[in-house]
Each structure stands twice: as structure tokens, then as C-alpha cells.
Design a protein around this nucleic acid. Structure first.
Lengths: 229, 229
DNA sequence: TTGCTACTGCCAGAATCTGACAGTATCCTA
DNA sequence: TAGGATACTGTCAGATTCTGGCAGTAGCAA
């Protein structure tokens, strides 16, 4: 195995362990001496990988992905750039900033002539989505990722408000509104909540009792049959 | 310079020359022997780079970009995936397919656990944009890239039709409609054309007399001042 | 303190890369 | 049709890089 392949493997290996791993363990898993492992870690850090080593503990990789060298056609790059620009205009501030960062990272490694094409790119996105939620969508995405319950006050179309505790597992971006897809403890069923009607959002540390992917799959299966709201 | 750096350099070098370049020239530019150059080319081709070599001519790189190893945070990847999904639902078929391909390429290199997260991802995009243009937006993007004139029949809001020859330089994606931004020869001014009002689109081989980027810059400068249509 | 860990410098052997040469096949032009 | 230019492959010795082991320093925790 060539060195560059091993470096990518090392990242993957670090990702698997959530807790700090000692260099010795990693060296064993990679089938390489401890000395070489230190060199590999140093190389990866030099390439921008967020690996942290602490004496007495081991190594942790801050969440993230290392993509190996990839070839994209010009249309594929156009698609990625256009898509990221669209995301950058969405009202979810954290996601919007992430999209801008991703674009900057890509632009940083392109040769000069291409960067100019990108900067002055010819694919544009219209004005930002008008509706601005009063809540922080970042909290919702975090709850989804960590499978945590969310509590909030929900106003339905008629204006009637109700308190909900839900198990959120997806966030859908429509033209004008963002919709949280979740299991509702009050209704004991899947429900879609428009983000602009959610108030007093409370993130909790309580894990919901089912796996996110299972919920998502089940919800998809129900999409054919119409339901009440 | 390490070998992996040299490989990326080689791609950039190939990109600069549009015409076929001989291996000997490339070897000189990279400061490396011809034998090593052949080895490097083979390695790049093995990594999926679309390099073509023809005896008697030299090497050409089909348009595309090789991205070096890149680190993305989880939110950055989420943003890219969400954005690409949005593009994949746009009515521009070629661009939509390109977005799907790009997603597949990224998914192919992610470790299994992440690929699952991606497949069953929790960030969704609403239904595809409703308005379907009667014209092929791919032709428009191609004309923009190559700085070629476009001819078509345009119906304005009142229904009156007129024949136009324009210099297209940008394509803007709004919630419902796609808008071609161009210099209009008939009006001798910048104009925005809704794609769904364009008919009988004719791509031409005639290059328009100004640089796309210059037009774009000038157009941006006019955005403050209101204009007629 | 003791034990565990990260991290660095050094050096010799292993692995890889590189350049040079020889040779074949293909394409273009004259 | 012939000649020249070019892509491409095999081989091999020398240059370069990588690797593993060793010794040593420093930080953290029980």
C-alpha cells in the first residue's frame, strides 16, 4: 500500500474511534511502526486535517471528512458551485456559512484561471429565501444529528398553538419555507412542522428511543398514503 | 517536491495548454525525465484523470478539475450535499445529471458509515421546480461558456413576441424561473430573459465581440440603477 | 513518584522512485 | 510510400525517500 493511500486509511481509522486512541493502537491497525505513525500524523496535520494529540490520552479527530484526490468534469464543478451558492443564501446561518467555507476551500486549491471563472461565475442564484425563521435551524440540525428530542410551541395554520415534544429526523428545504420532519409525541404520528411557525425552541439532551434512519425509512413508506395534519 | 505534489502540478500544466502537448515538453516543464513523465501520466489515468495521449500529437486533458485531498467539516459536507441535491432537482437536465454524478463520486470515496448517513441524509429538498422551460438550458450554458451569440423568439409579459440576438453571460436561478442575463442587440442594453418565455432557441458559432467577464462586471455595476425592460 | 502518552532527532536498511537506454507501435506529413 | 514525431513498455542501476528501532524530552493522570 502506498503512503498516500495509508494516510487516507488513517483518517478513516481515526473516524471509527470516537474516543481518544493511542498512537500505538493506530500503528498496529495500520500495520506500521509507531515512529512512522507519528510522521503520518504530522503529514496529515500539515494538510489541514484537524487531528489533535494529547500526551497521556491519545489522538482524536474533530468531526470532518478528508476527500482523496477527485476528478470532476466542468459541469460537475458548476453544479457543486451553484448548489453551494444556493445553500449560502438559505436563512440557516450556520449552514450558509459552511457552504461559503466549502466554496472558499475549493477555490483555494484551483489554479488561478479557474478561480477567476469561479469568482465571476456565470451561474447565479436569486435573492435569499424571503421567509426568515425566528428559530435557529442550526439547533434543529444538531438535534437531528444527535437523535435528541426537541420541545417547542407550534402554531398551526389556524393560529392555534400547542406545545410539542418531537423526535426530529429530517429537515426539508422548500422554495419558501423550511420544514422539520419529526415524530410527534403529542399526536403519536409523523408530522411536518413549518419552521416559521415554531417558537420557543428548546434543545434537550434526551436521546429519542429510536434510530433516526429507521424513522426516516418508515416516514418515507407513509408518503404515498395521505394523512391529516 | 514530492511525487503527489508533482502529479497535481502536472494536471495544472496540462490545463494551461489547450492544444496537444508532447510528453517531452511536459517533462521539461516538470523538470523530470521523459520516462518518469510517462509513469506519472499512467498514475493519473489510474486515478481517473481524463488524459488522452495520441501518437504523433501529444497529450490533451479533457476539461475537468482534479481536486487535491481536501478536508471538510461535517457541516461543509452537509452544505455541499444539500446544494447538489437542489441542483439535481432543477429542470436543467445536463446540470441536474452532473450534480447527481458529483454526489455519486463523493459518496464513492466516503467510508461506509458516512455513505449511509449521506444516502439516508436528513437534509431534503422539496419537489422539483415546477416551471419547465421549453428550451434546453444546457445550450444556454454552453453559449455562455464559449461566449457565443444566441438567437431566439421572446414573448414579453404582455404576450408580444420579438426576435432577439443576444450575448448571454449569466444564468440566474430563482425560486420558480430561470433567467438568462445577456446583452440584447435589439435593445442595445442589458436584458433579463425568463427562460420560460424563450422559444425557438438557436445556438450559433458566432463569438460575441466582448469578454464575458467584462460584461458581467458592467452588468453588476448597473444593478443599482433601475431600468426599463 | 510511576506509568502512559505525545513528540523529536538520528541512523542504517528497505522500499520506492528516477533516469537512461533499447525497442515497438501508431499517427501525420511530405 | 517513406520518414519523422510521438506514445508507450521493459529493464536495470543509482538516487531518493520511506521505514523501523533506539534514545531522549515533555506533559498528563492516578
Amino acid at each position: 500500500m502506498s503512503r498516500s493511500e495509508r494516510l487516507l486509511d488513517l483518517i478513516q481509522c481515526l473516524r471509527r474511534h470516537r474516543r481518544p486512541v493511542s498512537g500505538h493502537t493506530l500503528a498496529d491497525e495500520m500495520g506500521v511502526s509507531i515512529r512512522t505513525l507519528y510522521r503520518d500524523i504530522a503529514t496529515l496535520q500539515g494538510q489541514g486535517a484537524p487531528i489533535e494529540g494529547e500526551a497521556g490520552l491519545g489522538y482524536v479527530l474533530k468531526p470532518g471528512f478528508m476527500l482523496p484526490p477527485l476528478m470532476f468534469s466542468d459541469e460537475e464543478i458548476e453544479a457543486i458551485v451553484l448548489g453551494s451558492r444556493w445553500v449560502a443564501k438559505q436563512p440557516d446561518q450556520r449552514l450558509s456559512a459552511a457552504a461559503a467555507n466549502a466554496l472558499a476551500k475549493i477555490a483555494a486549491v484551483l489554479p488561478d484561471d479557474l478561480r477567476e471563472d469561479l469568482d465571476a461565475s456565470t451561474l447565479l442564484v436569486g435573492p435569499p429565501a424571503a421567509a426568515i425563521e425566528g428559530i435557529d435551524l442550526g439547533l434543529v440540525r444538531q438535534a437531528i444529528r444527535n437523535e435528541r428530542k426537541l420541545g417547542f410551541l407550534y402554531r398551526d395554520a389556524g393560529g392555534a398553538a400547542s406545545e410539542r415534544v418531537v423526535w426530529p429526523f429530517a429537515l426539508s428545504f422548500f422554495d419558501k419555507v423550511r420544514v422539520v420532519v419529526a415524530w410527534c409525541e403529542l399526536r403519536q404520528d409523523f408530522r411536518h412542522f413549518r419552521a416559521d411557525r415554531i417558537a420557543e425552541l428548546q434543545a434537550t439532551d434526551t436521546r429519542y428511543p429510536r434510530r433516526r434512519q429507521a424513522l426516516l425509512k418508515e416516514w418515507r413508506a407513509t408518503l404515498d398514503k395521505p394523512r391529516g395534519s
